[in-house]
Design a protein around this nucleic acid. Structure first.
Lengths: 215, 215
DNA sequence: GTCTATAAGGAGATAGAC
DNA sequence: GTCTATCTCCTTATAGAC
């Protein structure tokens, strides 16, 4: 009889968990439901995972990295801040609407992590990855256009990330795609005013320190 | 023996549900946990509520209205769009950080409603209330300053609501209050550029229609 | 009219048969 | 090395004793 290896079983269960969570939600993804989805006996779950928490960590980490990869893909740069942002965010929004189930799952995973003792760091890691990727994107735009972000990249990325995350959550509720797209255009127009000409600062000065911290 | 009336029992259970959900999360608020918190026998739950869904609707509706009332309270208007927004949003943020548990509970309620068959309309109602209140606020600012929102109040309120909702979710994860406040300042500065001079339009013209729709 | 006791089923985790 | 069968505890809901 062709037995399955532990590594293969592990991957089967991760894939099954992913399907159950996108289809029925994170709360519905019991070890039983996951094992059934994978056509695996229930005991095989605890044979390859020490606990459900271990599976949640793997699923979260791989989905976050996958979505960040997909999101960063369509972000082309032109010399102009406004048009870079506009094209980049509309591209991102296409990906987002096309992966609605995964997006909802990511929200649920973050919320679940926040409430589960021992899992709080996972939600924090997830959002640090988001914030890091957003900062990277804004830096790239600023470099291409020869500008800098006011008052700092740190603050600008929080403004952008907050808008996008909130836009997504609101859209998951009301699915108003038209208004979401119009909101992106209006946001880009106003947000671009935070891109200001680069100031040349003397090394070691207070504003040089500030510029370094901001980067 | 002084027996309790059904109406009193109902209110006791609602209050208890509120305490359990703010303390332990919506997912932890089982009928047992709620009844225990209210020091009531478990069966009294289904004596006054036909189902758990009925309780969730009551809890959600009363909390949304309560938070909207608290949020709208500190929103003073000056003649200037930027300073009105800045003071208003910082005031709102004070309330928000001071009611973190309730805010997290509202996210959880919305997410739970979205995933629960028969409860989807509750999440939609919740966000319609948010969007309605935000539009009202933006209208009041525009009236006080004698300006209008571009491209429309509908779109501007979605930009503002998205930013605030996303800022809140991000803060619930990383609790970075300093960055959140700085993000509000940066956002206000850029968002205020969507307030433009009012155009006087001939009644019945295409742009008059547009202005009416926008209102 | 109120609540004890129980039904009916789902959860995570594991002992021990094979 | 794999999985059947079970343990313990949890859930919503209700029958029926008082």
């Amino acid at each position: 009889m062709a037995r399955i290896t532990a590594a293969d079983r592990r991957q089967q269960l991760i894939d099954a968990a992913f399907r159950v969570m996108t289809r029925d939600g994170v709360a519905a993804a019991s070890t039983r439901a996951i094992a059934a989805e994978a056509s695996a006996p229930l005991a095989s779950f605890h044979y390859v995972f020490s606990s459900k928490e271990e599976l949640l960590r793997e699923v979260t980490e791989s989905l976050v990295e996958k979505m960040l990869g997909a999101a960063m893909d369509g972000l082309e740069l032109t010399g102009d801040v406004s048009s870079s942002l506009r094209h980049g965010l509309h591209n991102l929004w296409e990906v987002t609407e096309g992966t609605a189930a995964e997006q909802q799952m990511l929200f649920e995973l973050a919320q679940h992590s926040l409430r589960t003792p021992g899992l709080e760091d996972l939600a924090r890691w997830q959002y640090e990855r988001y914030f890091g990727a957003t900062a990277q994107y804004l830096e790239a735009i600023a470099d291409a256009a020869g500008v800098q972000w006011a008052p700092s990249v740190k603050v600008a990325r929080r403004v952008l990330m907050s808008f996008l995350d909130g836009l997504l959550f609101g859209w998951l509720v009301d699915r108003n795609s038209k208004e979401a797209r119009e909101a992106i255009d209006a946001f880009v127009e106003s947000f671009a005013t935070l891109a200001v000409p680069r100031t040349i600062v003397a090394p070691g000065s207070a504003s040089a320190d500030q510029a370094r911290r901001a980067a």
